[in-house]
Design a protein around this nucleic acid. Sequence first.
RNA 1: GUGGGUGUGGCGAAGUGGUUAACGCACCGGAUUGUGGCUCCGGCACUCGUGGGUUCAAGUCCCAUCAUCCACCCCA
Length: 426
Amino acid sequence: MVIQRPKGTQDIIPGTIKRWHFLETQIRKICSEFGYQEIRTPIFEATELFQRGVGETTDIVNKEMYTFLDKGQRSITLRPEGTASVCRAYVENKFYAQPQPVKLYYLGPMFRYENTQAGRYRQFHQFGAEVLGAQDPLVDAEVIHLIWEFYRRIGLKGLEVHLNSVGCPVCRTEQRSQLQYYLQERKSDLCLDCQDRFEKNPMRILDCKNKGCQALTVDVPTTLDTLCEECKEHFAKVQQALRDCGIEYRINPKMVRGLDYYQRTAFEVMAEGIGAQSAICGGGRYDGLVEEIGGPSTPGIGFAMGIERILAVLDKQKVAIDNDQENKVLIAALGAQARQEGFKILSELRQDGVSALMDLMGRGLKSQMKYADREGVRYVLILGDEELAKDAIIVRDMRLGDQSEISRGAIKKYLLKNMKNSKYLL
RNA sequence: GUGGGUGUGGCGAAGUGGUUAACGCACCGGAUUGUGGCUCCGGCACUCGUGGGUUCAAGUCCCAUCAUCCACCCCA
């Protein structure tokens, strides 16, 4: 039997890699402009990092991790997200001793053992950024601004930013008791998941997708109703700063993210038309996380976006990615001697930085022309016995459909003169 | 983890029990013995996802299994 790729994985093949390159280029560019430096952390980490960082009550840790014992009996996990690793690296490399804040971004594969569906894979890719060491609400706005500007640049439209504040540990206590008090009598009407959440993580009942639970929680005290004074002020400043940089957002007091580490600001970006998995970006503030994994008390905020989902929206909105592969040259050689000579010319052109091809299948001239046409080649250099004898070569311009015979030594000069886009020549 | 749909050549897609499994696209070659994009002609299938079973006979029916798609849950 043919061996297939594992469930939920993909081969990113030449036909689509251009779109990845486009996004990767835009990501590096905007991060550099906003003052973020790339960090590359291991693809696998000690399992405990995610248990403590992401949280024991989350679905990610409970049922979605790729965990195994290595030959030294260490429990290892393929990273399901990037934030915990970045925080670990911040502590391990003593970034807290550098000027703060430390602004980092990452781009790479993540792994979650889930059932696949549209926009959901087991190996998927995230671009994320984190700011560590600053609690100023302006930082929250800067991070969202980066996201907003990135989507604008790559040409996505009609996205919605959902914003909320889930409070700090102080308001969380109040939130929890008010919520439990309110729901106490109707606990039995909640879905089974929510009955479970009632003790473990009552806040998550707020964004349960179950219709019955939603009906029961129409008037519940939300995270915004129970914010402490400091959190309230922080949230107000974040909103002011967002308005100052022209970002449209929608407050959603029932949005609670599924990772335990979030505090205060939480946000998601939603897109339409790509199936049920419409969140293309999620993030928030996690002021307790660095300390949780053993570092000094350090505020932090960040986001992650799914590359595959962005690509899905780009496809859906038919955003054109420009193609910079132009001005190719193909050498059409006829006969053994011409092939040998043609190969020499090919290598010389390549040394001059010209994007050049040659037939490698022993095709006849007609087929080589066809091949050139399909490869989008602009110039075909024809070399046969006749040309060999005269030390000449025919240059055919495929777009104009005309051709002329020139001397072998004049090839480079001819191409230089005619190729509009001279970046392909040294 | 739960529920539904699908699985025929590189891709798309007929065929629902009975001779050598249509067709379209792509690919290769020819018509034009040294010249592309159009046209015409021709070529290109060891396993109809895999493994069992029913039957004189299965791509067509049954079971299992795998993959894939969609949805729930959750998330990027």
